[in-house]
Measured scan of single mutants.
Amino acid sequence: GGTTSGLGELPSGWEQRFTPEGRAYFVDHNTRTTTWVDPRRQQ
C-alpha cells in the first residue's frame, strides 16, 4: 500500500489491477466491465 495518492478506497465491487506493462486499470465486478478511468475521479 501507500500509493493511494489520497483518493481513498475504491467503490464497493471495484478492483485495481495492472497490465503486464504496469499500467493501472479498474475492474467493476458489479457490471463485469473494465475501465482506464479511476472511478474515484468520477464522483
Score class of each variant (00 low, 15 high):
7 L>H: 10
4 T>V: 11
23 R>A: 15
28 D>V: 00
39 P>L: 00
32 R>T: 06
43 Q>R: 15
39 P>G: 00
19 T>V: 05
19 T>K: 01
17 R>K: 15
34 T>F: 00
31 T>C: 07
10 L>C: 04
9 E>I: 07
4 T>H: 13
22 G>Q: 07
13 G>N: 03
22 G>T: 02
12 S>V: 08
35 T>F: 00
20 P>G: 12
38 D>R: 06
17 R>F: 08
22 G>D: 06
32 R>F: 10
1 G>E: 15
20 P>T: 12
19 T>H: 04
6 G>Y: 05
23 R>E: 15
38 D>K: 06
12 S>L: 07
13 G>Y: 01
25 Y>L: 03
6 G>I: 14
21 E>F: 05
19 T>E: 05
3 T>Y: 10
21 E>V: 05
9 E>M: 09
30 N>W: 04
34 T>I: 01
3 T>N: 14
35 T>N: 01
10 L>M: 11
42 Q>G: 13
5 S>K: 14
6 G>K: 14
26 F>G: 01
11 P>T: 00
34 T>Q: 04
39 P>E: 01
24 A>D: 11
34 T>N: 04
43 Q>L: 15
3 T>C: 11
19 T>L: 10
33 T>C: 13
36 W>E: 06
7 L>K: 11
39 P>Y: 00
26 F>D: 03
10 L>T: 03
13 G>Q: 06
22 G>W: 04
7 L>W: 08
31 T>W: 02
43 Q>A: 13
12 S>K: 10
38 D>E: 06
35 T>I: 00
12 S>F: 07
22 G>M: 08
20 P>F: 04
20 P>Q: 11
6 G>P: 09
4 T>N: 15
33 T>I: 15
36 W>P: 04
1 G>D: 13
7 L>F: 12
16 Q>W: 04
28 D>H: 03
27 V>M: 15
42 Q>K: 13
18 F>K: 11
35 T>W: 02
1 G>R: 09
19 T>N: 07
30 N>K: 08
17 R>I: 12
31 T>Q: 08
38 D>A: 06
23 R>N: 15
43 Q>T: 13
13 G>P: 01
34 T>L: 03
27 V>D: 02
30 N>L: 06
25 Y>Q: 02
34 T>P: 01
23 R>M: 15
35 T>A: 02
22 G>C: 05
11 P>Y: 02
9 E>T: 08
19 T>D: 15
16 Q>Y: 08
15 E>K: 04
33 T>Q: 09
7 L>V: 12
14 W>A: 02
36 W>C: 05
32 R>G: 07
34 T>M: 05
29 H>D: 05
28 D>P: 00
14 W>D: 03
29 H>C: 05
32 R>H: 09
22 G>N: 15
41 R>W: 10
5 S>V: 10
15 E>L: 03
40 R>A: 04
37 V>G: 08
35 T>G: 03
27 V>K: 03
5 S>E: 15
41 R>C: 15
27 V>Y: 08
3 T>L: 11
8 G>Q: 09
16 Q>L: 09
10 L>Q: 04
7 L>N: 13
22 G>R: 07
14 W>P: 00
28 D>R: 00
19 T>I: 04
26 F>Q: 01
41 R>D: 15
32 R>W: 04
8 G>W: 05
34 T>H: 03
24 A>K: 12
40 R>G: 06
11 P>Q: 02
17 R>L: 14
20 P>K: 14
14 W>I: 07
14 W>E: 03
24 A>F: 10
